[in-house]
């Protein structure tokens, strides 16, 4: 064995080392393949979204380009596909959305506050948390059963039967666990230091909450809440059970508030109805209405993104 002593030897050794460290083109072939496999799987999901939009716009094009204003302003007509529109669906969805938000958001956020700020770790908190997690996994149609029995029948004195209020309560029950879970996460993300600093200057729990913690968590809570309302907007199954009208609804001359206690429908329910009818014209209506709801969903998601970025705090 020679020692690396002379310059020549050193040069040889250096060359050897350099060669052994060299990047070999084939060395990470499996890794490259793996990476591209992952990219293609990810791409599949994204591409699907693109294809979905293109197909819906294409199929609904005759309606979207031909009679968009009529389509947006007409009621649902069972007689003729050419006269059918989504106005009542949009109104219904907005109303249900308002009702859902009114019922679910206060209760959801209050529950989250109780879990994080008051009952942390206790048996009651743990029971509520477990319960909320399980509720989040209950299929939406099961909430429809709840709505049908409890909100439409048992509580009909309050809801007036198959109305926007009953639908809103049903969807509120459905999104409540989602709002609780995202709000809990948002509150837990508020650094402990903020709480301690506020208590340190003698604030009561309520003051700490309303002035420090909620403002700090509001962006995440809003994001989660808005996204959960997007989910409510897209739900048809529970509304079908609660009795969303599948035929023409006459609002008569009732005003906006009165329509909350009248028969109702919603955009996804209308889409379902369009899709059930035979014939090209009806499928064009279904596609066009899908475009409308996709745009609404996109807007809601945009709003969520806006809240997230607008209020984003760096700790």
């Amino acid at each position: 064995m020679r020692l690396a002593s002379s310059p020549a030897d050193i040069a040889i050794q250096t060359a050897k080392t350099r060669q052994s460290l060299q990047r070999r083109p084939q060395a990470d072939l499996p890794g490259t393949l793996f990476k591209w496999l992952l990219i293609s799987f990810t791409g599949f999901a994204i591409a699907f979204l693109g294809v979905l939009v293109v197909v819906m716009v294409n199929d609904g094009w005759s309606v979207l380009s031909g009679r968009l204003s009529g389509f947006l302003s007409n009621g649902f007509s069972q007689r003729s596909a050419q006269d059918a529109g989504v106005w009542q669906g949009i109104v219904g969805s907005v109303q249900i959305g308002i009702a859902t938000a009114l019922f679910a958001i206060p209760v959801g956020i209050a529950t989250a506050i109780y879990l994080v700020e008051y009952a942390t770790g206790g048996w009651f908190a743990r029971a509520v948390e477990l319960n909320v997690r399980n509720l989040a996994g209950v299929p939406s149609i099961v909430y429809g059963l709840l709505g049908l029995t409890v909100f439409v029948k048992t509580l009909d004195g309050f809801t007036q039967g198959k109305t926007v209020i009953a639908g809103g309560l049903t969807l509120a029950a459905m999104v409540l666990p989602i709002i609780v879970i995202t709000s809990v996460e948002a509150l837990k993300a508020v650094p402990q230091g903020i709480r301690e600093a506020a208590y340190g200057v003698g604030a009561t729990k309520w003051e700490v909450l309303s002035r420090q913690i909620l403002p700090a968590a509001v962006s995440t809570i809003l994001t989660g809440t808005v996204l959960s309302l997007a989910r409510a907007l897209g739900e048809a199954a529970p509304l079908i059970l609660v009795g969303a009208a599948t035929g023409f609804i006459s609002f008569g001359d009732s005003n906006f508030l009165e329509t909350f206690t009248g028969p109702f429908t919603a955009l996804p329910v209308l889409i379902f109805n369009f899709a059930r009818q035979p014939g090209e014209d009806w499928s064009a209506n279904a596609a066009a209405a899908s475009v409308v709801i996709l745009i609404l969903v996109l807007m809601i998601n945009g709003a969520a993104l806006y809240f997230r970025n607008r209020f984003e705090k760096k700790w």
Partner: peptide, 8 residues
């Protein structure tokens, strides 16, 4: 060096 593979 550009040629060097960090994994090696």
């Amino acid at each position: 060096d550009e040629e060097v593979d960090p994994v090696e």
